[in-house]
Nucleic acid binder design. Sequence first.
DNA 1: ATAATAACCTTAATTATTTAGGTAATCAAT
DNA 2: ATTGATTACCTAAATAATTAAGGTTATTAT
Lengths: 160, 160
Amino acid sequence: MSHLLDDTDLAILNHLQDNGRAQRNTIAELVNLSVPSVSERMKKLEERGLIEGYNAILNSKKFHFDITAFIFVQVDGSENYRDFVDKAIVEPEVLECHSITGDGSHFLKVRTKNTGSFESLLSRIQAWEGVSKTRSNLVLSSFKETRKLPVEHAVELIKS
Amino acid sequence: MSHLLDDTDLAILNHLQDNGRAQRNTIAELVNLSVPSVSERMKKLEERGLIEGYNAILNSKKFHFDITAFIFVQVDGSENYRDFVDKAIVEPEVLECHSITGDGSHFLKVRTKNTGSFESLLSRIQAWEGVSKTRSNLVLSSFKETRKLPVEHAVELIKS
DNA sequence: ATAATAACCTTAATTATTTAGGTAATCAAT
DNA sequence: ATTGATTACCTAAATAATTAAGGTTATTAT
């Protein structure tokens, strides 16, 4: 089977997870390869879809988004999932929308500017068709909020 | 008061949120500025800390991380918060660790390769000092998993 | 009004990335 | 085992992107 990852790929992936705009010569130095070789590896990782993309991380506090909360939403079984999602998707304050185990349960991660905007978002959600119950938890503090995948644990992809 | 954001800054931020490795000339075209002007704006947004950094987004499915779950952890009030976090932080499968409203409640977002590794992570967590109760919800599907902040809503930062 | 600052531009210099072409190592099939 | 194809790498050259320099205009504060 071809297309396995070696330690060099893992090092590149790990570096890019923390440093998405890292330059190829920096990475090349890190992994002891020439710049074109790093370019080629990066291109392959992108083409294979292992790297989905890159993004800038903004500091939500600096934008005065002070409230992060999780909301469980119980949805009436007869209600269409897609409709729920369609409504969630247009709310820019909804950062994530998951369907989870438990009867008709959906789960939202939201970020709002203050308690007022949180309350109004919540009541908008409660007014959606089929929503029978919600339960919210506000985040007091976050000790780890990384999106970094521990790629070195994906052993079946890794060669040697 | 100085240091407000205008529409050009917002356009740059929005573009970078989706496209973290975007080149300055692409952005320059988008916002009708010269390349050096875009560079200067980006540098300021970084220096001001509005942009915290950049990262590569990996496709967790391609790495065979098939389970995403949320775990509520009730912690004994006498137990030190820091100790909890210290233990959570060393687990690479723990993506997020939040302290939330509700008595002694912590909340974890975890990503594991399969149900087996999830079970073993969960029982490790249950064995931590002071942990009195856990409740887990597995993610069935995620319809929106963006980290994109709706910056245009941060009106008090915005000029004009 | 005037000086200082900020934001922008163009051009030139520098630095990063890609392309081209070649070599050694791996792998599949004869 | 040998051959041919492929892959991963390298160096050097060409191209493209970024930064630096210097100047203009507009805004802001005194």
